[in-house]
């Protein structure tokens, strides 16, 4: 699901009457450890409203350097909304209000001095559906460096593009046709192109919103490998529908339910020893 595209009114799923099945134990506070030693991004007591309706309730979560944080949960649980708040992609929805504290390296994301353009250059994002620009492969990757003036000359730009494509594991497949339109690639290639595009700007954090949901299993495997490699240099937060994916790629996992962060812990302990009943029900497949 893609929160930004669906109008707030249609988000009825968020506020369905809780049934006996779903709410077995009231969510009073987050279970587990939401903080890390060396946080890159921090969220404290975050509430998000779409107009009258509240989508996120009092969520606190850290994203550390060189780690992958996976966010899982049933549809409409607010995980994508939370992710999009981390680089202020929700700004484009007029009815969306964010309260609480969010910061990058201690700098308030919603403070008056913060420039969303600069923020997004530091916190990149990869979307659910691959969304290459209607440009050539080269121009897709070169777009970010160009607008930010990261390359002094054509040679430097070439180098950034090549390097990014290599790191995204796409270079060998497209090196002969960098002038071909990016929209002509296969789905998996398009998504890797979008990742290459994101790392070409040298961000510090990469947010991924269900990056594999539109891809076939082989393409998914390649992206997952890539995520693991990227962890060496970036802090990564990934929203995913697939528990297996979360288990494979992440170091920590956060479980969201009806806009609340139910449990967050080492991926291992979340999947082997969930402490909250809701989490357990979800990972054992009782709903979701």
């Amino acid at each position: 699901m893609n929160d930004i595209l669906s109008p707030p009114v249609s988000r009825a799923g968020l506020h369905e009457e809780p049934t006996a099945n779903t709410v077995l134990q009231e969510i009073k506070a987050t279970v587990g450890t939401a903080t890390v030693e060396n946080p890159k991004m921090q969220a404290r007591n975050v509430d998000v409203h779409y107009g009258e309706k509240q989508a996120i309730f009092d969520v606190s979560l850290d994203i550390g350097n060189n780690e992958v944080v996976a966010m899982i949960g049933p549809s409409g649980c607010g995980k994508s909304t939370f992710l999009r708040c981390l680089n202020r992609m929700n700004d484009s929805i007029p009815s969306c209000r964010v309260s609480g504290e969010m910061s990058l390296d201690g700098e308030d994301l919603y403070g008056p001095d913060l420039d969303p353009v600069l923020l997004r250059a530091r916190v990149g994002m990869v979307f659910q559906k691959p969304n290459p620009f209607a440009k050539s492969i080269y121009d897709n990757v070169a777009y970010g460096p160009r607008i930010h003036g990261l390359a002094g000359n054509r040679g430097e730009l070439d180098e950034i593009v090549t390097e990014s494509l290599k790191r995204a594991g796409l270079f060998d497949e497209v090196k002969d046709r960098l002038d071909a339109p990016g929209t002509g690639l296969s789905g998996g290639q398009q998504q890797r192109l979008c990742i290459a595009r994101t790392i070409a700007v040298s961000p510090e954090v990469i947010l991924m919103d269900e990056p594999c949901s539109a891809l076939d299993p082989i393409a998914t495997a390649r992206i997952e490998e890539l995520i693991d490699e990227l962890r060496q240099n970036y802090a990564i937060a990934i929203v995913t529908h697939s528990m297996q994916q979360a288990a494979r790629v992440s170091q920590r996992t956060a479980y969201f339910h009806l806009g609340k962060l139910v449990e967050v812990n080492d991926t291992n302990s979340v999947f082997t020893n969930p402490q909250h009943e809701l989490t357990e029900n979800y990972i054992t497949g009782r709903f979701g």
């Binding site: 060396n38 990058l104 390296d105 201690g106 250059a121 530091r122 003036g149 990261l150 510090e204």
Partner: peptide, 14 residues
């Protein structure tokens, strides 16, 4: 959290 240590790229963007 440690104060911002902007990467070279970030400085460039700024």
């Amino acid at each position: 959290a440690a104060p911002a240590q902007p990467s070279p790229a970030t400085a460039h963007v700024k």
